[in-house]
Simulated scan of single mutants.
Amino acid sequence: MKDILVRSLTGVVFIALIIVGLTWNVWSAIAVMGLFVGLGLAEFYRIFQKENEGPERFTGITGGVLLFSGLCLTWLSWADQRIIWIPAVLGALPFVVMITELFRSKNNPIQNVSLSLFSWFYIVLPLFVLILLRGKANFPFEAIFPIGMLLIVWTNDTFAFLSGKFFGKTPLFPRLSPKKTWEGTVGGLLFSLLAGYLISYFSGLDLTFWLIAALIVAPAAIIGDLFESMMKRSLNIKDSGNILPGHGGILDRFDATFFAAPLFLILHFIYF
């Protein structure tokens, strides 16, 4: 009972922080997502450290935060020619990682560079996508797109778990996640469609868009979850961290979003 209470309270605080951050204004959205970028990168570099081997933490985390900040500033000031130096600095960041590895004398330098660059692609870019979806306007309704997408992700995650728990019999991907079932997957998708309908109903936005979004986001969320399961199994760990009691780490909570957000952005661009 205590574990359920802790998990529930953690989930409420986590969701409230995201929704308030995305809703308040564009700067609060950048601040909250920037916080998760930093925490997510810290987790990533911690789980890939083994016996003094692995990618360089300080360069990777600092570079990732700078990349996120630079992307946000460039996007906010796109028409201002004075910010041309920001993309130039961002373009130099991968070379900083490569140069740093020259002086570390580690056994797997190419792997370390690859992991550092992958961490930016895997964590930084999808969370920046949420900022793009949020838009620049400082009024709450602008946040409906990233929040709506996240609601579909969370709905899929919750009801895939519940459907699998009560009806699951057929394993979906036993090699990576023995508890996931086809019955749970179908249940998550159906409730995701219901979430899309409710988002459209209460927001007044196009129903077809949100139903298509649900059909894209739900499978992408499952793939994102399976990918992180594969990563954790390869490292022989259960959770990416313990910063969220009852939920694991930041990567555990955003694994589905990392895959769903870019696809949702593509749909948004095509549709609107």
Rank of each mutant, 00 (worst) to 15 (best):
A92E: 04
W75G: 07
V97R: 04
R104W: 04
L22T: 02
T100V: 08
G60Q: 00
E53T: 11
G38I: 00
Q81I: 05
S114N: 13
S28T: 12
A42F: 02
Q81G: 10
E43N: 11
W78K: 14
I123F: 07
G38A: 03
F95Q: 11
I47F: 11
G40Y: 01
L115F: 14
G54W: 02
G34Q: 00
N112H: 14
M98T: 14
I84R: 07
V96P: 09
W85E: 09
L41G: 03
M33Q: 12
Y122Q: 09
A79H: 08
L102Y: 14
I61H: 09
N52Q: 07
F36H: 03
L41C: 04
S77W: 10
L93W: 10
I83C: 03
L67R: 11
L35W: 01
P55F: 01
R57G: 01
F58H: 01
E101S: 12
L71E: 09
A88R: 09
L35A: 09
S114G: 15
N52V: 00
S105L: 13
S119E: 03
L90K: 09
V65W: 02
L66D: 02
S105V: 10
L90A: 08
L66P: 01
V37P: 07
K50F: 08
P109T: 13
K106C: 10
V124C: 04
I47T: 08
Q49K: 01
L76V: 10
W85I: 13
P109E: 15
E101P: 12
S114Y: 13
G70Q: 07
L125Y: 08
G38R: 00
S77G: 12
G63D: 11
I86S: 05
E43K: 06
P55L: 00
L73N: 06
G63S: 09
K106I: 12
R57K: 10
T62H: 00
R57D: 03
L73G: 05
L66A: 09
N25V: 04
I30A: 13
V97E: 03
E53R: 07
N107W: 09
E101V: 10
A79Y: 04
W78M: 10
W27T: 05
P55N: 01
F48P: 00
N25M: 05
A31S: 12
V96C: 14
L22A: 03
L39R: 02
T23A: 01
G70R: 06
F48E: 02
F118K: 08
G91L: 14
V65D: 02
P55Y: 01
A29W: 03
S114L: 12
L22S: 03
L41T: 07
C72Y: 06
A42H: 07
F103G: 12
S105M: 12
S105F: 12
S77K: 14
S116M: 06
F36K: 01
F68K: 05
S69V: 15
V37H: 06
E53Q: 14
G64D: 05
F36G: 06
A31K: 07
L125F: 14
V37L: 03
A88Y: 06
M33Y: 09
R104I: 10
S28I: 00
Q111H: 15
F103I: 12
I30W: 02
A31N: 05
I30D: 00
P87E: 09
L71Y: 11
P55T: 02
N112Y: 13
S69L: 15
L41H: 05
W27N: 13
T59Y: 08
T62D: 00
L73P: 05
N108K: 15
S114E: 12
L66M: 04
I30M: 06
N108Y: 13
T74M: 05
